[in-house]
């Protein structure tokens, strides 16, 4: 009987990039896990939290806790949403509340997808094949809140046919930032264009990340600029054969 994992499919993946969720499930199954998707899951609450609406974020967080309280592992295809649960749920509830305790209990079991593979499943070679030159974008919350830096690169290096090239601005923000992207569109766009220049300089044809929202931002700017670049979530690359 394989171990069971629950997946949390973020809003962006659910609505815009369902293929990322499907690819993640496939890779997890190939690694020997039974995957469950709890249909009553909704959102982690980050959009409201980051925009200053704590009360509304608390509602989403409370619901998340109710849905996942008995799950052993909750794997998330996003560093940002995973960090919302494991770090910022604790900012939402008073220290002596039952929700705080439950959030504390939940935190170590909510794990970003690449980290789940490298640290829990302990696999690096998932048997993937992808022909192409790829560069990796460090998404900010994965890098700075979850300290994920080498894991996704190790996974990519094991993909047959894939050449990984580092860009100079790998750690610079793509400019998405949730509602920042529409509150300050010019600044957000300019940040993405700086990233674009750094990516073009590598000669890579595909940008890979573990956060679909960064990729949505970057793809939007690539297409607008007419740059011949593709964006792919790590799960999609790892599901390729």
């Amino acid at each position: 009987m394989p171990a069971r994992v629950s997946i949390f499919v973020t809003c962006v993946v659910d609505q815009l990039f369902p293929r990322v969720g499907m690819a993640m499930a496939e890779v997890l199954e190939r690694a020997g896990y039974e995957v469950e998707f709890r249909e009553d899951q909704t959102c982690c609450g980050q959009p409201a939290f980051n925009t200053g609406y704590r009360e509304d974020a608390r509602k989403a967080a409370g619901h998340f806790i109710r849905v996942f309280r008995d799950a052993e592992f909750i794997v998330v295809p996003s560093g940002s949403c995973a960090s919302m649960v494991s770090h910022h749920f604790l900012d939402l509830f008073p220290k002596d509340s039952s929700h705080y305790e439950e959030a504390e209990y939940l935190a170590p079991r909510v794990i970003e997808f690449s980290r789940f593979l490298t640290d829990v499943a302990k696999v690096e070679d998932v048997g993937a094949r992808f022909e192409g030159i790829v560069t990796y974008h460090d998404s900010c919350h994965a890098l700075r809140e979850l300290r994920i830096k080498e894991g996704p690169r190790r996974l990519l290096r094991k993909v047959r046919g894939l050449e990984l090239r580092e860009m100079s601005a790998a750690e610079e923000c793509c400019g998405f930032g949730g509602t920042f992207s529409v509150k300050f569109p010019e600044v957000s766009g300019a940040m993405a264009r700086t990233k674009l220049e750094s990516i073009l300089a590598t000669g890579a044809s595909t940008v890979v990340s573990i956060d679909s929202s960064c990729l949505m931002q970057l793809q939007g700017v690539f297409t607008r600029a007419g740059a011949p670049l593709k964006t792919m979530h790590l799960a999609e690359v790892l599901a390729s054969r």
């Binding site: 499919v9 993946v13 659910d14 609505q15 815009l16 990039f17 369902p18 293929r19 969720g21 499907m22 499930a25 998707f37 249909e39 509602t179 992207s181 529409v182 509150k183 569109p185 010019e186 957000s188 766009g189 993405a192 949505m216 931002q217 793809q219 939007g220 700017v221 297409t223 607008r224």
Partner: peptide
């Protein structure tokens, strides 16, 4: 609305025809 702000500097992504939850249910 916000989509116009988004579109002022980049292309707007189209939602998938079928969401993940719908695809998963079919699967």
């Amino acid at each position: 609305g916000p989509a116009a702000k988004w579109a002022s500097v980049r292309e707007v992504p189209l939602p998938a025809r079928k969401s993940f939850r719908d695809q998963w249910r079919e699967r």
